[in-house]
């Protein structure tokens, strides 16, 4: 059997005396769409920051495609096939939409730090950039400065940057937060398309998004996963209802 795409073993994180992540174990097989839900302050974003290397672990281990990546800087983890989006839009604001996406393609296409060849010369880079632009439906805005896009467009660009490099594990942190219903529907459609055949880990508050998209769901409460399973099982779980979902479950 192949190693899980992403494996978290005894993950812990404390900020001073405050334990935010209190021993998380989770194995996500390849090509699974996995959602993490939980009340505010449960540690969902902290978990993402640990996995992507933004903040160091206090204890435990993270394996990406079977390889230990804990302690590596974010760019090393990214090069090994993990890409993430942010809850607060995190793009390159002074650059054009096209350049934003292209920068996310460069490393994966082997350009590295090349300062001796033209950036337009690599056909594979240009083609991939065009492909991503059309996937996120921003071709018509390609030459616009990213900082002046509408909020929904910036969120789409954020997803585009995240998927552009061809990482096989994608982490999305509340991709539909702050969107209207119509915008959310379009975003979910986009996420479904781009995560085809890849491993997706998503934090989301909108339960219709979560239950519509995820193959499995984990419930994180006070830094611990209290349940993991298919949507139907999570919806039916007494423990989850008590801890989090209440009576408003669809």
């Amino acid at each position: 059997m192949t190693a899980p795409a992403l494996e978290l073993i005894g993950l812990k994180k404390n900020f001073g005396p405050a334990e935010i992540i209190r021993g998380v174990d989770l194995a996500i097989p390849r090509a699974e769409r996995h959602a993490i839900i939980g009340p505010n302050g449960a540690g969902k974003s902290t978990l993402f920051n640990l996995i992507s290397g933004l903040i160091p672990l206090s204890a435990g281990e993270i394996r990406l495609n079977g390889e230990a990546v804990s302690g590596k800087p974010p760019f090393e983890i990214n090069r090994r096939g993990l890409s993430r989006s942010f809850q607060v839009t995190n793009i390159f604001p002074a650059m054009s939409v096209f350049e934003n996406v292209r920068c996310a393609v460069l490393w994966a296409k082997g350009e590295r730090y090349a300062f001796w060849r033209s950036v337009g010369g690599n056909r594979a880079v240009t083609e991939r950039t065009e492909e991503v632009l059309s996937a996120i439906n921003l071709q018509s805005r390609r030459d616009v400065q990213a900082g002046v896009l509408t909020y929904a467009e910036q969120r789409a660009l954020e997803i585009g940057i995240t998927m552009a490099g061809g990482a096989n594990v994608i982490l999305l942190d509340e991709p539909t937060a702050g969107m209207s219903k119509a915008e959310t529907e379009r975003a979910v459609e986009l996420i479904r398309r781009i995560s085809e055949g890849r491993t997706l880990l998503i934090v989301e508050h909108d339960m219709s998004v979560v239950f519509g998209l995820a193959d499995r769901i984990s419930v994180l409460v006070y830094g611990e996963i209290i349940a993991t399973g298919p949507p139907a099982e999570i919806r039916a779980s007494r423990q989850v209802r008590d801890a989090y979902l209440g009576e408003e479950v669809p």
Partner: peptide, 11 residues
């Protein structure tokens, strides 16, 4: 523009 984001595209 955004050194943090640059890290998450591999640089």
């Amino acid at each position: 523009d955004n050194p943090e984001r640059a890290q998450f595209v591999g640089y």
